[in-house]
C-alpha cells in the first residue's frame, strides 16, 4: 500500500524539477493576463507584460523558487526573442515606402530621442542623488537589453542592474506610453510606434504592434537604430558629463 502523502510528495518533487513546468506556467499566466487586458478594454495598467511579471514574481515568492530555477524552464520562451526580432523585418518591409518618404524627419527625431533618453536619465539621476555606478547603469536604459548591458559594463556600470532597468523602462513605456501620447495629442500610429521604439525598445515595440502593424514597424525600426546611435553617442556624452 503506497502512502498517499509520500506519493504526492514524490510526484510534486518530479514536477518541480521538470524543466517544462515554468514554460507552461509562464504561458498560462500570460494568456490569462492577455485575456484580462482585452476584457478590460486595453486599460493601460492591465498591460499583460506587467501583470504576467507581477503574477510570476508572486508565484515564485509563494513557492520559494529561485529565479535561476525559474529561468531554466522559461528560457525556451526567452530564446524566441531572437527570431521574433528578426521577424520585425516583415512589418518594416511593408512600411518601407513611409520610411523612404520620411527619412529626414525620422533621422532627426531619432537623434533627439536618443540624446534626450541618455541626458534625462543622467541629469535626473544626479538630481535624485543616485550613486555613480547606478547612474552609469541607467544611462543606456532605452536600448535593447544585450546592447544596454554591454554598454553599462564597458562604462563601469552594473550590467545586472541595467538588465532590470531596461525591462522596467520598457514596461513603463508600454503601460504609460500610449496614454501619455494621446494626452499630448499625438495620434499618428507611425509617430506613436517610433517614439515607443526609441524610448522603450522591444517591449514598447511589442505594445505598438498590438495597436497596428504600422506602429509596430516603426517601433522595430526605431529600436534598431537607437541601439546603434546610443552605442556611438554614450561614450561621448559620458566623456563630457560633469561629475562622473
Amino acid at each position: 500500500m503506497v502512502d498517499p502523502a509520500a506519493h504526492w510528495h514524490e510526484a510534486t518533487g518530479w514536477l518541480r524539477a521538470y524543466p517544462g513546468l515554468w514554460l507552461v506556467v509562464t504561458g498560462a499566466v500570460f494568456l490569462l493576463a492577455d485575456k484580462l487586458f482585452r476584457a478590460g478594454g486595453r486599460f493601460a495598467l492591465l498591460n499583460p507584460v506587467l501583470l504576467s511579471i507581477l503574477a510570476l514574481i508572486a508565484i515564485l515568492h509563494g513557492f520559494g523558487v529561485s529565479y535561476a530555477d525559474y529561468f531554466a524552464g522559461a528560457q525556451m520562451i526567452h530564446l524566441l526573442l531572437g527570431p521574433a526580432t528578426v521577424a520585425l523585418a516583415m512589418p518594416l518591409y511593408l512600411n518601407l515606402h513611409h520610411v523612404r518618404a520620411w527619412l529626414v524627419p525620422l533621422t532627426l527625431a531619432l537623434a533627439v530621442g536618443c540624446v534626450v533618453g541618455m541626458v534625462s536619465a543622467l541629469a535626473l539621476g544626479q538630481l535624485f542623488g543616485l550613486s555613480p555606478a547606478t547612474l552609469l547603469s541607467f544611462a543606456p536604459k532605452s536600448v535593447t537589453t544585450p546592447i544596454a548591458m554591454a554598454l553599462a559594463a564597458h562604462q563601469g556600470g552594473i550590467p545586472a542592474l541595467t538588465a532590470n532597468v531596461v525591462i522596467l523602462t520598457g514596461v513603463l513605456g508600454a503601460v504609460a506610453g500610449l496614454p501619455l501620447m494621446r494626452w499630448l495629442k499625438v495620434d499618428d500610429p507611425m509617430v506613436q510606434g517610433f517614439a515607443l521604439g526609441v524610448a522603450a525598445h522591444g517591449i514598447g515595440t511589442a505594445r505598438a504592434l498590438q495597436e497596428s502593424e504600422t506602429a509596430g514597424a516603426f517601433g522595430g525600426l526605431a529600436m534598431g537604430l537607437n541601439a546603434v546611435l546610443t552605442s556611438l553617442l554614450l561614450p561621448l556624452i559620458l566623456a563630457f558629463w560633469p561629475g562622473l
Partner: peptide, 11 residues
C-alpha cells in the same frame, strides 16, 4: 512578442 519579454522581466 510581449510574452517573450516575460522570462527576462521576472528577473
Amino acid at each position: 512578442l510581449p510574452l517573450l519579454f516575460v522570462p527576462a522581466g521576472v528577473g
